[in-house]
């Protein structure tokens, strides 16, 4: 939404002048005095620190800095990068990141669109629903993490509901099992090892996905809600007169108009997936048996695990940085493409 400025001043004046209004005048820098000192403080604090850290990280990644508190004097060279690329846990973390991204993104978009469409209809108590959907976005993941651990606990609310629905049996000892038919059904589709204990290797990643969906649907909802508000009511009216039902209007008229938001959410989710730390660290600690390990938790474990591997942590950070930069470039590209149609006014039919 706010990316248009990046090319504002190198845009050809001819194009700006062709538009009505004073655009050409607006784009001309009007002062001759140097303004460098106005941007320097922010530039030095932000770019200065971040690029310095990256450079330093690059340097540390070349050191065989393990086990000891002092910085080693010799360089190890690029060996640690080769080690990282052959490290199965690195690839596992990346794979989890990808699965997490796809699953959380799809569910978040679908629920966001449905909630936005419903709250644009005349339902009762609209604002209360809005608050309930958006509150999870506001509360810190670190504060909610212990609550989610409780929610997914063996004797927690999720299992309580499943029990009430008759899907889980509690035996005399108090241990929980799927009811007969469900258990054999799960075995049929090869999920025999899944038990109603959620923080276990086969399901812990999905707990993290579910929690992320819980805390991020509100963002998608607010964005979709805003872009739906810009759809011309006459277009909706026209399609209704043509005989389109509610669902037809949603799928064929409304959703195509949401494309810019859907693209923006893909980028946002990809960044979130790469950054992910608080939830997996505090809910599953990346486990059990690395089943919910992400790059963030893996780097943290290298730094503060049983022993400190500063060099290797820096190597992993540099690889993560490359991924984030690739995303940045994709992002600014798509932002430029998005620009002309930024404000969805009416929808192309």
């Amino acid at each position: 939404m706010a990316t248009s400025a990046t090319t504002a001043s190198d845009e050809p004046l001819a194009r700006a002048a062709a538009r009505p209004g004073g655009d050409a005048a607006r784009r001309r820098p009007h002062r001759t005095s140097p303004g460098l000192r106005w941007i320097l403080p922010g530039f030095v604090v932000s770019a200065g620190l971040i690029y310095f850290c990256i450079a330093y990280s690059g340097y540390v990644s070349l050191l065989p800095w393990d086990w000891r508190p002092r910085r080693p004097a010799t360089l190890e060279g690029l060996g640690s990068y080769g080690r990282a690329l052959q490290d199965p846990l690195f690839w596992t973390s990346l794979q989890h990141t990808l699965v997490f991204f796809v699953a959380a993104y799809v569910v978040q978009c679908a629920l966001g669109i449905i909630f936005a469409a419903m709250l644009h209809s005349k339902v009762y108590g609209g604002n209360l629903f809005k608050i309930l959907i958006f509150v999870p976005v506001v509360i810190a993941p670190a504060i909610m993490a212990p609550v989610h651990r409780r929610v997914f606990a063996v004797d927690g609310p999720i299992n309580w509901i499943l029990e009430r629905l008759g899907l889980i049996d509690v035996d005399a000892v108090g241990s929980r099992n799927w009811t007969g038919w469900l258990s054999s059904g799960l075995a049929q589709i090869g999920l025999a090892d899944v038990t109603p204990n959620w923080i276990q290797p086969s399901t812990s990643l999905w707990v993290i996905v579910a929690v992320q969906v819980w805390s991020s649907v509100g963002i998608a909802f607010i964005l979709f809600y805003a872009s739906m508000g810009q759809i011309d009511p006459e277009v909706l009216e026209a399609s209704r007169l043509d005989g389109a039902g509610n669902l037809r209007v949603l799928v064929s008229v409304v959703v195509p108009g949401l494309k810019p938001t859907i693209v923006a959410l893909a980028i946002l989710n990809a960044i979130t997936a790469l950054k992910l730390f608080d939830y997996p660290y505090l809910i599953t600690a990346g486990g059990p048996a690395h089943s919910s390990e992400f790059l963030g938790t893996y780097i943290y474990a290298q730094l503060f695990g049983v022993s400190s591997h500063y060099g290797y942590a820096a190597t992993l950070s540099m690889l993560l940085l490359v991924l984030a930069l690739a995303l940045s470039i994709t992002m600014s590209r798509s932002a430029r493409e998005r620009r002309p149609g930024r404000k969805v006014k009416g929808v192309g039919l």
Partner: peptide, 17 residues
């Protein structure tokens, strides 16, 4: 653009340094 290069910096990257 140099400043925007730092736009998507995951904080984990800065952790080690």
């Amino acid at each position: 653009w140099v400043l925007m290069g730092a736009l998507t910096m995951p904080e984990v990257v800065l952790l080690t340094p």
